[in-house]
């Protein structure tokens, strides 16, 4: 019954024309995209564009008003919480824990969908948890109460907990929001390694550079609808970003990584740009 026994060619996510809202107004409208098994999909867009809602919808927390979300062809709505928990793990934006559980205990929570109501963890559960701690660089914290960790450490522990679920699909909601640049890169390197092992990654990102650097497919949301989607080079452009984020965003090519660099322009540069004295427009895309 463990997730490894169910084969590795799993992890397809199909989001088809999904519309959903919390109250009367729709927050997400007619959103469609798909993530193939072992794909790395980034969802970008301004605050309030519906990124987090899409993540929650894929994890089956709410049912869409219309449209479908399928995991490996099965409608999420027809799966039990436990069945979803064995396939999909979610790393939330932030973890708030009122009780002083240790880091190891928190990571063992990831075994919840695989264990009964009272059962003690077996040796295999501990192995899975330990390897999750190792991969996220949190093994040294194992005995510490989570209430004493920094925001960045808690976030890595949350990723470890998600890994302990042994998911086919890993959903992340701005996982690097509280990480410094080194830990953000380390986290995305780890996600890329997981992708190489066949785990499907769907992540929302605020950091457009990380999106350009790591994602294979980008979904750009604007006010709940898909403004544009496709390869990073097709989506992350001056025109698209400037239109959706409503501020001038300069896009250039990074020659080391061969990926796009995204740079917002400050008010002074925007003013210079618009003054007739400036010779050439720096706001062209590459």
């Amino acid at each position: 019954m463990s997730s490894t026994a169910e084969g590795s060619a799993r992890g397809r996510v199909d989001v088809e024309q999904v519309t959903f809202g919390y109250h009367r107004d729709a927050v997400v409208r007619d959103v469609s995209f798909r993530a193939p098994p072992g794909g790395f999909v980034g969802i970008i867009g301004p605050n309030g564009s519906g990124k987090s809602t899409v993540i929650k919808l894929i994890s089956g927390l709410m049912a869409p008003w219309s449209g479908h979300i399928a995991l490996d062809g099965t409608d999420v709505a027809s799966l039990s919480r436990r069945e979803i928990g064995r396939r999909v793990a979610v790393v939330p934006q932030e973890t708030d824990m009122p009780f002083p559980f240790t880091v190891l205990e928190m990571v063992l929570f990831g075994r919840t969908p695989h264990l009964g109501g009272f059962a003690f963890e077996q040796e295999r559960d501990l192995q899975v948890a330990r390897s999750a701690l190792e991969r996220t660089g949190t093994l040294a914290l194992a005995d510490r109460p989570v209430t004493e960790l920094s925001g960045g450490e808690r976030q890595r522990v949350a990723l470890a907990r998600a890994l302990a679920q042994e998911p086919a699909i890993l959903l992340l909601d701005e996982p690097s929001a509280f990480l410094d640049i080194r830990h953000a890169v380390e986290m995305y390197d780890l996600l890329r390694a997981l992708r190489d092992e066949g785990v499907t990654i769907v992540s929302t990102l605020h950091d457009l550079n990380l999106a350009a650097l790591y994602c294979e497919h980008i979904v750009l949301l604007s006010e709940g609808t898909v403004y544009q989607q496709g390869a990073p080079s097709a989506v992350i452009t001056y025109e698209h970003l400037t239109a959706v984020y409503e501020t001038e965003i300069y896009v250039s090519m990074n020659e080391i990584t061969n990926t796009l660099n995204v740079l917002p322009l400050d008010g002074r540069s925007r003013a210079t740009l618009r003054s007739p004295a400036s010779e050439s427009s720096p706001s062209r895309e590459t």
Binding site: K56, S59, G60, L61, S80, R81, R82, E83, I84, G85, R86, V88, A89, V90, P92, T95, D96, M97, P98, F99, F101, E105, F109, G110, T112, P113, L115, G116, G117, F118, A119, Q165
Partner: peptide, 25 residues
Amino acid sequence: LGMQARALNALSLGEESAAQLGVDV
């Protein structure tokens, strides 16, 4: 109530996270 103990552990992460860990909140 003891039989809900593991679910209660997961619930200390909040209802959404507990549901995402497979708990019928």
